[in-house]
Design a protein around this nucleic acid. Structure first.
Lengths: 224, 224
DNA sequence: TTTCTTTTTAAGGATTTTTTCAGAACGGCG
DNA sequence: CGCCGTTCTGAAAAAATCCTTAAAAAGAAA
């Protein structure tokens, strides 16, 4: 579920972003009306959250332009003022809901929930391999009924394995992709994390194990 | 699977990057045409995604130059404009597919999938000879139903034999290719490794054996 | 802050690969 | 046949690589 926030007050935008990300949404953030239009037209979001007051182009204008161009994404407007006239203008211009600042995180989530539910079920995309399923939003790894929470790095490593199940992944590749090419992490960092992951796979009783091929790399393997 | 995005609007590039990474692709990102050429020529990508409108060098030019230089990587062009002329120019210049902004993430993934599948799902190339198959990613040697894991050096030796099945390979050549020209390994090292490999071929029940030609070298041979 | 989680670092042990070496086996030739 | 250089192979030593654990450091959350 992808959400775009357009809000010129960066710290507020960040706060909203964090709240939403905690709920598993993917959030992009822009800080003015023009960018909002670019993004909204290019990326298929499930919801737009627009501040009324923004540089370059205000929220009302953004909504009007988007609707004119055939973008039907639900829109939640934010405004500091609570005048009736604003509210009317907002809804007339094509927004779906309206919320005044300051607001309670609970309220935000409730409204976001209402607007996103409308477009259909929450899509939790996940990568699957053999008896494993890795939820890319929450980084939870599931096998049968059991589920474990992966840390950030465990998750990134596991995603690489599960997305390329037939490929042998070198340590260098993992260091590059997970730690970054300018990091000074060593092979041992990879080894430690492989060890962490193996422990969790064991706990899950998964048929998948991580095989090492000396001097070459690692590869997921399915038992039987 | 590695993808390069060349798109001058950084945050849009990031959005695309995120969508692709969610699916397990590895994504690099550059923001102008010149860098795109540098990267595409240096790193072996499986797909390039190019914006038409870019600073320094536009997407059409990038495609033309890359194709002229023998880069055959599939290319997906992005453009804001939907004119027929652009489309024709794009495909004429050597791009493989063409997508107009705005686009839906689903559509992006579908097109990316189509273009990357073409080059082969997961690139597991293997060298085959008689009843043997050597997986170059995992260094596993298979015959019939059986599979054995080769060590690094066993693998390199075996690959040389299987890629030149009719050739007699000298010990010097093996020492050079596998141990390196500045190593102080002796002929006996080769002999020991040939012995290791023969043991594994026997275990696999392969029709292939490694024949020695005195004072000259070794050659794979197929029984019957 | 304090507490909890994640990540890094370090070290010893386990495993695998590679080298070394010695004796046996082979092949050509007088 | 016996000789001699070459090749084969088993076993053990050495080296490289990998695993695991624990504790310290860093980072995030309360």
């Amino acid at each position: 579920m992808n959400i775009l926030i357009a809000e010129d007050e960066v710290s507020l935008a960040n706060a909203i972003k964090r709240i939403l990300e905690q709920q598993g949404y993917f959030v992009d953030e822009v800080n003015d009306g023009l960018s909002a239009i670019d993004y909204a037209k290019t990326v298929g979001y499930d919801l737009l959250i627009l501040d009324v007051m923004m540089p370059k182009l205000d929220g009302f204008e953004v909504v009007r332009i988007l609707r004119k161009d055939g973008v039907n994404t639900p829109i939640l407007m934010l405004t500091a003022k609570t005048t009736v006239r604003d509210k009317v203008t907002g809804l007339n211009s094509g927004a779906d809901d309206y919320m005044t600042k300051p607001f309670d995180p609970e309220e935000l989530l409730a409204r976001v929930g209402a607007l996103t539910r409308r477009t259909g079920e929450v899509i939790v995309d996940s990568v699957k391999f053999a008896d494993l399923s890795l939820d890319t939003a929450s980084a939870e790894l599931t096998c049968g009924g059991e589920t474990v929470q992966l840390s950030r790095k465990e998750f990134e490593i596991m995603r690489i394995f599960m997305s390329n199940p037939k490929m042998t992944v070198t340590k260098d590749r993992l260091l590059d992709s997970v730690w970054g090419s300018d990091s000074d992490a060593t092979d041992n960092n990879v080894e430690v994390y492989i060890s962490f992951i193996r422990k969790k796979l064991k706990y899950l009783n998964s048929r998948v194990s991580i095989k090492n091929i000396q001097k070459i790399g690692y590869r997921p393997e399915v038992a039987e």
